[in-house]
Design a protein around this nucleic acid. Structure first.
Lengths: 135, 135
DNA sequence: CCGTATCCATTAAGATACTG
DNA sequence: CAGTATCTTAATGGATACGG
C-alpha cells in the first residue's frame, strides 16, 4: 500500500529528481526576486519598485515561500514605522550562478528561438490556408 | 507614447532578460519532456508512459510548444497506424547541461531546503499557538 | 511602512469522449 | 497510434480595503 510508486514503469521520470528543478525555479517571481536580491539587501518597498509589475499579493506570497525554503532571510528592524529587509542566504546565493548560466543560454539562443517560432507559425498558417482553399 | 518603458526606475528588472529564463524553464512538463528525450528519440506513447501523470492534453500542448521553439523535432512516419517521433534538436540538446546543473544544485541542497521548511513551519506554528493561548 | 484578507476575473490543467 | 474537442475544476493573479 505504501510503495505504490515502485509500480511505475522503469522508464518513468515521475519520481525523478528532475521534478525538484521546478519547485523553485518554475516560479516566475521567485527568480526575479533572487536576481534583485543578488545586488544586496533590499526592503519590501524597494523590491516592489524593482519588479515593476508585481502585485503586493504575489510579492508577499513569493517572499514567504523563499523564506520558508531558506533561500532568503527576513529581518524586521524594531523601528516605527517598521523596516523589513530581505537578504539572500548563502544557499540562495549559491543558486545564482546556475540561474545566470541558464540566462546566458537564453540570451545566446533567443534569436534562434524567435526565428523558429516565426518559421513554425508560417508553416502552420500555410497549412491552414491550404485546408480552407478547396472549400 | 512609445517608450513608456523608459520611464521605469533604473533599478527595474522588468525589461531584463531574466524574464526569458522563465519562458521555457518555468514549464514543468517541458523540462520533464526534455529530460526524457535526452535518452534518445521517443514516440508519443513512450513519452506518455515515461511521464506517468501527464495528461494527453498537456503532453500534446507542451510538445507543440517545444517544437515551435525549435527545441524538439517532430517527424511523422508514413505508416498505418501513424508513427510520430520526437527528437531533441541541437538547440534542445545544448540546453540540457544547464538543466542538469540546476538539478545537481537541487539534489545537493534539497535536504537543507526541507529542513528549512520544517523549521519555518515549526516557528509559525509556535507563533500561532502563542497568539491563541491568551484567549 | 509593511503587510493581511477578501473578492473577482482569467488562465491552466485534468477528465472524458471521440476521430483520421 | 496519435491526437482533437469539449467540459469542469483548480490554480493564479489582480484590485481593493483594511490592520499593526
Amino acid at each position: 500500500m505504501e510503495n505504490i510508486r515502485a509500480a511505475e514503469p522503469a522508464f518513468s521520470v515521475t519520481s525523478c529528481t528532475a521534478r525538484r528543478v521546478l519547485e523553485i525555479v518554475s516560479n516566475k517571481w521567485a527568480v526575479l526576486i533572487i536576481f534583485v536580491l543578488e545586488k544586496g539587501t533590499k526592503r519590501y518597498g524597494q523590491l516592489q519598485r524593482s519588479i515593476a509589475d508585481i502585485s503586493q499579493k504575489m510579492l508577499t506570497q513569493t517572499l514567504r515561500q523563499l523564506e520558508r525554503d531558506g533561500l532568503i532571510e527576513r529581518s524586521v528592524l524594531p523601528e516605527v514605522p517598521p523596516v523589513v529587509e530581505y537578504t539572500l542566504t548563502p544557499m540562495g546565493e549559491s543558486l545564482i550562478p546556475y540561474l545566470r548560466q541558464l540566462n546566458h543560454w537564453l540570451n545566446e539562443y533567443y534569436p534562434q528561438i524567435e526565428q523558429a517560432r516565426k518559421d513554425y507559425d508560417a508553416r502552420e498558417k500555410f497549412k491552414a490556408d491550404k485546408s480552407t482553399q478547396t472549400v
